[in-house]
Write a protein that binds this DNA or RNA. Structure first.
Lengths: 197, 197
DNA sequence: TACTATATATAAGT
DNA sequence: ACTTATATATAGTA
């Protein structure tokens, strides 16, 4: 009744050495599978142990994948800005219930932005240089839609005012004991070339 | 022939549900084991497939662990600044030779700043909602040192100019065919815990 | 920490 | 994408 069984359906998993897989197709498949496995484990780890985690990888094809709990950004910033420094991205909005809806729109938009940034292919070398969050890549501004641009514009204006104000306050307060001078000239130079004000 | 076997040396691995481990000691042990496993897998992935990877986790005790190839910083930056982006502070200082030196001082200083921040231990908070970084509240501005403040001020000004400019460009261009909406359906690879590609 | 029985991940093959 | 045999990871225990 039974048809002759073909020898073995599979030889099962074989042992492999941990070294670069030369076959391109194979490499991609393996990356895909293992990335999934890795993300799954990462998720399990946080669920089981309650820590935070971020995993970021670039595929051989240079595409970015990431997994994060609570979010990649959160974890990365926790690493970059330890201490009680309140992370700009994570600032509390709490008591002002009014903003919640707006908030969600923004979050959604942020996801888009991030995604868009990631979508682009990155180039080989990253010159040294350190970037701060408030040095937003011009590129991502280019990618913004009108609506978002306007929102940002308004917020930025307000923010700038606050910063200017604080800067001056501190300047007054610390001017006596301040030794460094991250001097105005430097900054003005930059202003100059852009604004011509 | 055999002496009575002591029950079993081990019942072996038991199945567990993926949910928070309440027992503290257990949780720590599990974190430790699984973190090791995760990092190992991460390493294998890059070796096998040649991509890049960064894994960052905070233990339940809030200690930071990370694994990266070639390095965490490299990968994180690749994610944040995909293209051959040059930060605003470094942009086009070229034509005016005079500014180069200042530029370098600034960069160096910034590096130090960042290093210093990293040294500190982070605290636990940041529970409630997020806002966009460009809607940074005053409280975090208050926490900034003078140097950082000044630097931010410069960058911010430039950023604002860029945004203003872009906003106006777009305004012109899109005023006829207003169809803002969030672009692009094709961003699958991010925040996509489960599915594969 | 070290051990082992078992749960899970996954290399090949289809 | 799906399957299967096997390699690996790991929960509970000593």
């Amino acid at each position: 009744m039974e048809p002759a069984k073909q020898r073995k359906l599979s030889q099962g998993r074989k042992k492999i050495n941990i070294e670069r897989i030369e076959n391109t197709g194979n490499r991609q498949v393996t990356f895909s599978k293992r990335r999934q496995g890795l993300f799954k484990k990462a998720g399990e780890l946080t669920t089981l142990c309650g820590g935070e985690i971020a995993v970021i990888t670039f595929s051989p094809g240079d595409k970015a994948y990431s997994f994060g709990n609570p979010s990649v950004e959160h974890v990365v910033e926790s690493l970059l800005y330890p201490d009680n420094y309140t992370s700009p991205m994570q600032v509390r909005v709490g008591e002002d219930g009014l903003r919640r809806k707006e908030q969600q729109e923004l979050d959604e938009f942020q996801r888009q932005l991030e995604a868009e940034k990631r979508r682009t292919k990155r180039s080989e070398q990253m010159k040294s240089g350190n970037k701060f969050w408030w040095e937003m890549p011009i590129e991502s501004i280019n990618n913004m839609g009108m609506e978002e641009l306007e929102k940002m514009r308004g917020a930025l204006k307000e923010l700038k005012l606050n910063v200017d104000k604080k800067a001056e306050e501190k300047m007054m307060k610390e001017s006596t004991s301040l030794k460094i001078s991250l001097p105005d000239p430097t900054i003005r130079n930059i202003d100059d070339r852009a604004s011509g004000e």
